[in-house]
Nucleic acid binder design. Structure first.
Lengths: 133, 133
DNA sequence: GATGGACCCTGTAGCTGCTACAGGGTCAAG
DNA sequence: CTTGACCCTGTAGCAGCTACAGGGTCCATC
């Protein structure tokens, strides 16, 4: 079993997570507090690398912090049904789809707006007009 | 010229903007400070209604506050080229398209993840696995 | 052993765009 | 004269970081 120790800087490089963000995750209890050296430096082991990698991947998929927290809790309880994890993923899918729908509506609106520009002066700008009552 | 006066509550109802938000817009200098009654109530006129409607529509299109501010400034200078307004719209389009692309990538990823669930226990959950290093 | 630079520490404030109080004042109807 | 609906200010909170300020540590080099 090869267990390597890392400073916060190394952990950041290994996982691609900003140092300040790592400390933030610790503060909100997402990442467990690591041991300290005599000089009060944080010392991370392989568990931390794994956990932080998990967090980063989940965050990259847009999962909110609180959902990541629940996922981590679940992954610590191997005898729970996988369906609980799946439900979180499905909920996130729905959320993403809601946002996609919103943005698509926006794009349509903006496109219509942009097409109305005929050059000229602000005084008879259709865009400004469209935004006015 | 019919000029009607409104309290903040009426203005909110007319424009669909939350009262607290209206005060917030005033604080950040987006909506000009209105006159006050002897009892220190804000009194809004038609200009305020127009301006706040403009703000709301622009915000609904996702324009950031600072962009709305520039748009309002432009709409106050009728002799400037309309192209400056158009540029803001085009930039917002790009922003929306960037976000759409991001979300579409997310949806694909999440979809793949969700499909991997075979039921069973967390211990051999593919989703958890996929998020682990 | 002194010095320099790269790294680490804590604590706090800022970002966006609101929203939600707490703790008060005003005003009109009944 | 009281009740209730409205208004006021000021401040804190949300998410999820990020960016300091003002210090300490560690290691290599002179």
């Amino acid at each position: 079993m090869t267990s390597v120790d890392h400073t916060i800087g190394t952990l950041g490089k290994l996982t691609g997570v900003n140092i300040e963000t790592i400390r933030y995750y610790e503060r909100i209890g997402l990442l467990p507090e690591p041991a300290r050296t005599s000089g009060n430096y944080r010392v991370y082991g392989d568990t931390h690398v794994r956990r932080l990698t998990f967090i980063r991947k989940a965050r990259d998929l847009g999962f909110p912090i609180e959902t990541v927290r629940r996922m981590l809790a679940l992954s610590d309880q191997p005898d729970r049904p996988c369906a609980e994890v799946d439900a979180l993923v499905v909920e996130q899918m729905r959320e993403v789809e809601r946002k996609l729908a919103d943005l698509e509506r926006l794009r349509t609106e903006l496109d219509r707006l942009a097409r109305q520009c005929r050059g000229g002066l602000v005084s008879d700008c259709r865009i400004i007009e469209a935004l006015s009552p």
